[in-house]
Simulated scan of single mutants.
Amino acid sequence: MPGTTTARRPSAQDFLELVERGRRGRLKLYIGFAAGVGKTWRMLEEAHALRARGIDVVGAFIETHGRADTAALVRDLEVIPRRKVEYRGVVVEEMDLDAVLARRPYVAIVDEIPHTNVPGSKNRKRYQDVLDLLAAGINVIGALNIQHLDSLNDLILRNTGVRVRETVPDAFLEEADQVVNLDLAVEDLVERLRSGKIYPAEKIPWALEHFFRGPNLSTLRELSLREVAESLDRSATAAARLGEAATSTRGRVMVALSSNPPRALALLRRGSRMAGRLNTDWYVVYVETPEETPERIDAEAQRHLLANIEKARELGAQVVRLKSTDPAAALLDFARSHRVSDLIVGRTELPPWWRRLLRRSVLQRLVDEGSGLDLHIVSFEDEEGRP
């Protein structure tokens, strides 16, 4: 008819493209226990092997650390130019997420996944950029070291004396469809360091005196082997349970959080690791009493509470806020109504003996009345280790 516009009839190819866009990408992670075990090298080798088979693969972000042999593997690959941002007078180079999404390769290589992006970026962390790529249907091959796993943060500090600042939540590791652990004898890794294959010459003495000490590397290597083995076991267990979800009787994990516990991160990491080992969901439950309404608690406590809630969600927990004049009863009611099997609480400073005679603490009531629940009381001194 005159004056009307006929829309183009969608073709079969349009439908196939729509299906392809809706398909989640696959994630493969190379895990190591320290810099220099060969994560980037192995990713680049795999990229070349895929390219030789006609697969569309690009380097979304590759960090050579100035190593000539690693840089040589990059030359023949298509690499997405980095996004350059000026921050506090310094030009910072980041992965260009928008450019990778626009290029839409079949496989993207992403190094240094625990990295924190420069302020103003779409996502705060690079692992979140990877999740965006996966959501867009782009397959990702990435790398990270075991010490960057968030739930291991306190354990790493206790065993090595090093507080790792760049972390990824355990839930990200669970996103991986394939995990490859790159193992190397500690002696061989130290030899690689001494020969200048990991860091520039001026950084070698400092590294040998700090992170690359023999006991540290042995601890990290053991953690890496154990964590990957547990990850594979969780994957196998999850696959075996497909189709049984409705009748599953496995319990859930719950962390009881007060408005401003002194070591909230220790509790959250303990909950994350336990839920991961049990391959189950977990909750973080905060009970707001009349004395702890937002109008009554001070601004600093409110800020800590909100930060702890955000961290819990980042670690994969479902955060629940209850209101009650009786915190112990509210926690126990929630646990029993949501099939919780393991309840994690922090050890609090006990009140004077005469006050305990008049009123039992929340912790004591959980011990006395928590029949059917496994109660885990975290000793913060034990959990946090050396300052």
Rank of each mutant, 00 (worst) to 15 (best):
R226D: 14
R51S: 15
K125T: 07
E384W: 00
R104A: 11
M95D: 00
A108L: 05
L184Q: 08
L27A: 05
V367N: 02
E202M: 15
P352I: 01
D154V: 01
A102Y: 10
D333Y: 04
A201K: 14
S371E: 03
Y286C: 14
R194F: 13
P352G: 01
A136C: 05
T325P: 12
V340H: 01
A185D: 14
V255H: 06
V118Y: 06
T70I: 14
Y87K: 11
T237M: 12
H376T: 01
L366E: 00
V90T: 11
G120V: 03
D111G: 11
S11P: 08
S11M: 01
K39Q: 00
L278C: 07
W41S: 08
E175V: 02
R51T: 14
V285L: 04
E45V: 03
A171I: 09
P351C: 01
T219I: 04
G22W: 01
N308A: 09
P262A: 06
R347E: 05
E191Q: 15
H148G: 03
N145K: 04
A275D: 06
P2D: 00
E295A: 15
Y127W: 06
E381G: 13
F172P: 02
E46T: 09
L357I: 06
K39W: 00
P262W: 01
L149Q: 04
V91W: 04
L208P: 13
A264R: 14
L18V: 14
A135K: 07
V162A: 13
L350T: 01
E45H: 08
A171E: 09
R277F: 11
V319I: 01
G32L: 00
S218Q: 11
D76R: 12
V180E: 05
L97P: 08
E292V: 10
L73A: 04
A207H: 05
D333H: 08
P200I: 10
R165H: 03
G38A: 07
V37S: 01
D333W: 00
I113W: 06
A136M: 02
L232R: 13
N216H: 09
R270K: 06
V253P: 14
D129S: 06
L184E: 10
P114K: 05
S195C: 12
T64S: 10
L343V: 02
R296H: 11
A238P: 12
I377R: 07
A34I: 04
S195V: 14
R234I: 12
V118I: 03
E202K: 15
S248C: 14
N216S: 11
D382P: 08
H115S: 11
D326N: 04
Y106C: 15
T325N: 13
E230W: 13
R386Q: 12
V92P: 05
E46C: 01
V228N: 07
E166W: 02
H48R: 11
